[in-house]
Write a protein that binds this DNA or RNA. Structure first.
Length: 651
RNA sequence: GCGCCCGUAGCUCAACUGGAUAGAGCAUCUGACUACGAAUCAGAAGGCUAGGAGUUCGAAUCUCUUCGGGCGCGCCA
């Protein structure tokens, strides 16, 4: 009998969740329970202790109060109904009022068949109902390469997106490019100075607050060599001064045309300001034996360097992400949000709701900045929506704050149809969560929902030692380094063996070790082992095809049934992990399934009649192969959700 | 000073979102390879879930409080 022909094409847990409610309804009809009861909190779950049975429900305890009866009494009558179910072998009331059901093996056997029929699609569902959901992750500044912390966020976000797709959401993956703020300008100035160095000029100094990494030189070189149309500027008037024409000739530099500059200005939203930026005040180069200050007329070169430096950086970032197997993100530019007037639009929307005002903020207690200046500013009433204080939307120079831009970005997401939004951020942005949620709530009249997953710090251990990282010194472990050391499979899986809000020590040695300690290998090994069983069967000339037609009622051993039980939990694990936005749960489940499979395998060593392949008993073997294939499908789809290659054979 | 996250076996971490006697792995001790792959498995030991108070049938989980750690606190992102 095929389960697909029965009225129960679902997991035993889903089946009984329904049966329990049906039984309760019939008790209501019979007048044994009141009619106005809320069944929503009732569960049908595997009991914590398998000795208690197959299915456990809390129904009696949940209903006791409203039904004005003792949990025990309700459990007794409910149990009598449930015992009539064709799949229930036995049942009992335990503890404070749990009902434990022991099921007939047929239900598990038939469910395994269901799993085999669905194959890789087993575990998929449509609880998302094709609803749109937006998952934003990585969103690192385009001012440096991705490093370990970004890797964690990238993986958590990507796998969460996979999970949501698996349960029927329409997922949009996004990367918000923070190319709109002063950090990009500092980055552009850093590249500019390295660019001068690359021309063979010696800088008097390289300011502390500039970006120190080697990669900045690479980008400067790349700009000089590959982009063309370059120039450098000692004084903003200089390129029209015939006195210095020879310098342009010497370095083969080409000054920009006015229309070049204007189009970049428009594109990037820069205002033209003459003079030299204060951070460049002490920087000069030796020219004709005298020090010449650099960086004047920033408006003429800064947009150009900012534009190309960010572009080159993003090429690198995308390449790294691709190597990490993350490639489906839509990149949204903060600068474009500003330039296209979307910030103003979002601002107006808040203003119309009366949520903008001019006011003063108290300086933070205990850590008053030295340069605190009490001033009137443009504030958003975020405190009306759960934030601690109101937040400024404009800087003192009149430009938008990062928060204002981010509000506009989220407003834009919402207007594009995403009521449900998830952001994956580093823990250092924790202080930002309340105000962003407040903004989303305010802009969407509470119709939009934002969940922020904060990823705690990642430390890297190598040879038992902590690898020191310093952003100031420009020494941090890049994503690229990690990928070269451990590869995407290990990195992706390992990053999900902890929940996102727990700090993570990533031990490179252990992650590459092939042993029980290493969950990646452990699960991979189990998957490869399912294949090796199939190969073994093929050698004994037992057919491994159409296993869903095998005589599954031959699976009666307790170990076999409990393996099916574990397989049958896959759909609810996927569902729970997706709804809770907690991809790490899948890692633990896969580890459990792998462990149970390895354990059962080893039992066959002492009890040969339990081995999967019994050469002279094709029917029994095919039934057991069906079980192996079910495990194979679940392990494979689990690894697929993680974006980890299910290896076919251990080498 | 305020806010957020966290505190679970010696160590690294789970615990199906309020369920039963809080579970794994490592390390420690005791066992299992003439092999469907021992890259594995079985067993033992290990706990006042940081401390205290509360909420209810029931708390690691929710509330309050103390202690300890991390992150953050206008014109960085």
């Amino acid at each position: 009998m095929h389960l697909s022909n029965t009225p129960a094409p679902m997991t035993p847990y889903q089946y009984f969740a329904r049966e329990i409610v049906a039984a309760l309804r019939s008790l209501q009809a019979a007048g044994q329970l009141p009619n106005d009861l809320d069944f929503s909190a009732i569960t049908a779950e595997p009991p914590r202790d398998p000795a208690h049975g197959d299915i456990s429900t809390n129904a009696a305890m949940v209903l006791a109060k409203a039904a004005r009866n003792s949990p025990k009494a309700i459990a007794d009558v409910l149990l009598q109904r449930l015992l009539k179910d064709k799949y229930v072998a036995d049942g009992s009331v335990a503890g404070p009022g749990f009902i434990n059901l022991k099921l007939k093996p047929e239900l598990w056997q038939e469910h395994l068949r269901e799993c085999l029929v669905k194959g890789d699609k087993y575990g998929d569902s449509d609880i998302g109902g094709k609803r749109l959901i937006n998952v934003e992750y990585v969103s690192a500044n385009p001012t440096g390469p991705l490093h370990v912390a970004h890797a964690r966020g990238a993986i958590v976000g990507d796998v969460l997106a996979n999970l949501l797709e698996k349960v029927g959401y329409k997922v949009q993956r996004e990367y918000y490019v923070n190319d709109g703020g002063v950090q990009v300008d500092i980055f552009a100035r850093s590249v500019f100075l390295r660019y001068l160095e690359d021309l063979g000029l010696e800088l008097s100094t390289f300011p502390d607050e500039f970006y120190p990494g080697e990669y900045v030189r690479d980008i400067a070189r790349n700009i000089r060599r590959n982009i063309g149309g370059l120039w450098w500027q000692i004084d903003w008037l200089e390129w029209s001064d015939p006195e210095h024409k020879k310098l342009y000739d010497q370095f083969k530099l080409v000054p920009p045309t006015v229309s070049d500059m204007r189009s970049l200005d428009r594109r990037l939203g820069y205002k033209r300001e003459p003079g030299q930026h204060p951070s460049l005040r002490n920087v000069s180069v030796q020219l004709d034996g005298r020090p010449v200050p650099v960086g004047y007329g920033e408006w003429s070169w800064l947009p150009y360097f900012a534009y190309h430096a960010v572009k080159l950086m993003l090429v690198q970032i995308r390449r790294d992400l691709k190597q990490l197997r993350i490639g489906k993100q839509k990149f949204v530019s903060e600068r474009q949000i500003i330039v296209t007037g979307k910030v103003q639009k979002a601002f107006n929307a808040l203003d119309q709701k009366g949520l903008i005002y001019q006011g003063r903020l108290d300086p933070p207690k205990g850590q008053r900045p030295d340069d605190w200046e009490d001033r009137e500013q443009t504030l958003f009433r975020s405190s009306q929506f759960g934030d601690d204080v109101d937040r400024p939307l404009k800087k003192s120079d009149g430009s938008w704050t990062y928060f204002a831009n981010d509000i506009a970005y989220h407003y834009d997401k919402y207007r594009r149809g995403y009521k449900d939004m998830i952001n994956v951020w580093g823990a250092d942005h924790g202080g930002y969560v309340k105000r962003m949620k407040a903004a989303v709530g305010a802009m969407t009249e509470q119709k939009g929902d934002l969940d922020v997953k904060l990823c705690q710090l990642v430390r890297v251990l190598k040879g038992g030692e902590l690898v020191r990282m310093s952003k100031r010194a420009g020494t941090f472990i890049t994503l690229r380094d990690l990928l070269n050391e451990v590869g995407p499979d290990v990195l992706r899986f390992t990053m999900l063996t902890r929940k996102n809000d727990a700090p993570f020590d990533f031990d490179i040695d252990k992650a590459t070790e092939q042993s029980r300690d290493n969950p990646v290998w452990y699960v991979q090994y189990a998957h490869a082992r399912t294949n090796s069983v199939m190969r073994q069967a093929a050698e004994t000339r037992i057919s491994t095809s159409k296993l869903d037609e095998a005589a599954l009622n031959r699976l009666v051993d307790a170990g076999e049934i409990s393996l099916i039980r574990l397989v049958a939990q896959w759909p609810r694990q996927v569902e729970a992990a997706a709804l809770a936005h907690e991809p790490h749960r899948i890692a633990f489940y896969l580890g459990d399934l792998a462990a149970a499979f390895h354990a059962h395998w080893t039992r066959g060593r002492e009890e040969p009649n339990l081995r999967f392949v019994i050469a002279d008993n094709p029917d029994l073997t095919r039934a057991r192969l069906a079980l192996v294939q079910g495990i194979h499908f679940v392990l494979r789809s689990g690894l697929n959700v993680f974006g980890v290659t299910p290896i076919e054979e251990m080498t």
